[in-house]
Design a protein around this nucleic acid. Structure first.
Lengths: 333, 333
DNA sequence: CTGCGCTGTTTCAACGATACCATGACGAAA
DNA sequence: TTTCGTCATGGTATCGTTGAAACAGCGCAG
């Protein structure tokens, strides 16, 4: 591995000139520039970005923390973020917070040591006070989080509207008893969806029945269990709205186990539109969240802040879209 | 942000002593050690790992390149690798090669500039000559690749045995016409699975019929198309073996479209055991590949090479396991 | 009482870049 | 011809850390 000194020697110029060529400083004469370029090519020299980081105190790297990369929702988001970062010459560290503030904090400390220029926190578990403190040390973008002011940007999907959308689709088919499959209520989007569910019922003049509101976690077993419980009820719901697709798919399986046909005996609507949603049989009606775009948009926001030193936090809201497929049908009375 | 110098001043010792405490050099007196520790705690000092990297020429970071993080197989592998790395105090850059040698090469160059200590290449698309050259610059572990010698380690799953396993399960149910849903044949595991399919037929004294061998890519549409073609055949197969689960699930949908019941009219067996395999209805019979363990194992191998300076490449082979579920039944004659 | 070895500590030169400042060359203006 | 301004280039301090070498203090043997 060569250093800038050796390149300078080879090209017969000073290290300063080589550095100027490397950084596109325009004051270098075309002749010298060419000699440097030739030497670089000949020696296959690559600048040592660690040394550069030390001197400039910028790393051109950021980190992205998601709850769990195994959850099919997040890889696409990560993909969008990574592609956008690469386009602007940044690399990204990917981390999981495992839905624990402690793990998140540990990973953040590690990233701080590595001098990342910014961070994107998706569904952060850190208490707001820590986030505020963090935002003073490093450029921050929050995704799927409540924005209680602060020197950070926030990118969200309008899940309240999305949930309303889903419920209206269900209500339009004549359903009156609609169950809600709930995941952990620890993020903004979860709460927004639940709020959408309740408000849609209200607007339709229907009661919110506690027996039709599950509790659980974002795993298909939980959707299965919640659905089994509701479907065993004396007056069982004719439709189920899942707070995410995984729960809804668990419900599909519960219906199958109880011998109920979908959508004949039971309608099911999910949320997120993960890849497999259109693959299950029957294909899941759901609400599409722009996952890839969420990644792109949050990374753009972050890098804009970093490169332009913007400290004023911006607020971005992406819109979800309905994806009507096969699991929603007219009520069977 | 404080530096080691300021800590030294605060503790009333020299920077060397602070450095020794930081690096657990045993020669420091308990008294001095405590004073340094106190100063560190008081100032909330974090060592600048960039400066450390520059001096030691080690970054305690590695990179992991997978074909596509969106493919549900890879996040689990990445998870295993990351957890293992974290346990040993390393951080990992995650990259996609997008099934293109050029993209892979670009990402590798970037990582080289960042001075990663090692790389794990999953299903590399780089030509062997480049890999050989790379292995001279950085510690390398290859996953899902043929090991033509070289100064790198290789970790694989025994997919030949896995395919034999799957085929034997199918043959035991009396099936004689068995189709093979094929993905891109660009990796080791793909070719091994196909070889297993052919050999199993051979061993059973059955012909390998070209009409029952699809061509396509690893997307469910492709599985759907291949299955549609085979099921439209005059003497259609009674069982389908998918080179991965996504293809098999596409086939499930094709069967559904053609009004064939699974496993009554058609048996389907997949490969990989991705998360949703047990979620589809009917649940997919498949071969489980130890994804998480593959990540853990390859990271362990890499870090062992890095930390112990082992250059001799080791060869690890993990075993797949059958996962009998609902899509395989006796032949219906 | 001197000299030796041991142990723990300090000092200081790297690591490979960047960024600032001084330098020197050259052209234009006086 | 002299002086000044401009501007590309060279030289060097610096970023925060490590690690080797120098050093100081002390006990102990000769």
């Amino acid at each position: 591995m060569y250093t800038i000194k050796q390149v300078a020697k080879e090209a017969g110029v000073s290290v300063g000139t080589v550095s100027n060529v490397l950084n596109n400083i325009p004051t270098v004469t075309p002749e010298n520039r060419q000699r440097v370029l030739d030497a670089i090519a000949k020696m296959n020299y690559r600048p040592n970005s660690v040394a550069r980081m030390l001197k400039t105190n910028r790393s051109r790297s950021v980190c992205l923390i998601v709850p769990d990369i195994v959850n099919p929702f997040y890889p696409e988001l990560a993909r969008g973020a990574q592609n956008q970062a690469a386009e602007q010459g940044y690399t990204v560290f990917l981390g999981n917070n495992d839905r624990s503030a402690q793990k998140e904090s540990a990973f953040i400390d590690l990233m701080l040591e590595r001098k990342v220029d910014g961070m994107i926190l998706v569904k952060p578990y850190l208490p707001m006070s820590d986030i505020l403190a963090l935002s003073r040390k490093v450029t921050l973008v929050l995704v799927d989080a409540f924005a209680d002011g602060g020197a950070f940007s926030v990118v969200n999907v309008d899940d309240y509207s999305g949930a309303l959308m889903a419920m209206r689709m269900i209500l339009e088919q004549g359903h009156r008893r609609i169950g809600f499959l709930r995941g952990t209520m620890d993020g903004r989007s979860d709460q927004e969806r639940f709020r959408g569910y309740c408000d849609a019922l209200d607007q339709a003049g229907l009661p919110v029945d506690d027996a039709l509101i599950g509790t659980g976690r974002y795993q298909w077993h939980s959707g299965f269990d919640q659905a089994m419980a509701m479907l065993s009820l004396h007056d069982r719901p004719s439709a189920l709205f899942g707070s995410n697709d995984t729960l809804a798919i668990g419900a599909l399986r519960a219906a199958h186990n109880m011998g109920l046909s979908v959508p004949g005996d039971l309608s099911v609507v999910g949320y997120d539109d993960i890849d497999i949603a259109e693959l299950v049989i029957p294909a899941l009606t759901t609400i599409h969240r722009p996952k890839y775009e969420l990644g792109v948009s949050s990374m753009k926001t972050l890098l804009r802040s970093i490169d332009h030193g913007e400290t004023a936090g911006s607020r971005v809201m992406l819109q979800p879209e309905p994806r009507p497929r096969e699991t929603l049908g007219a009520v069977n009375k």
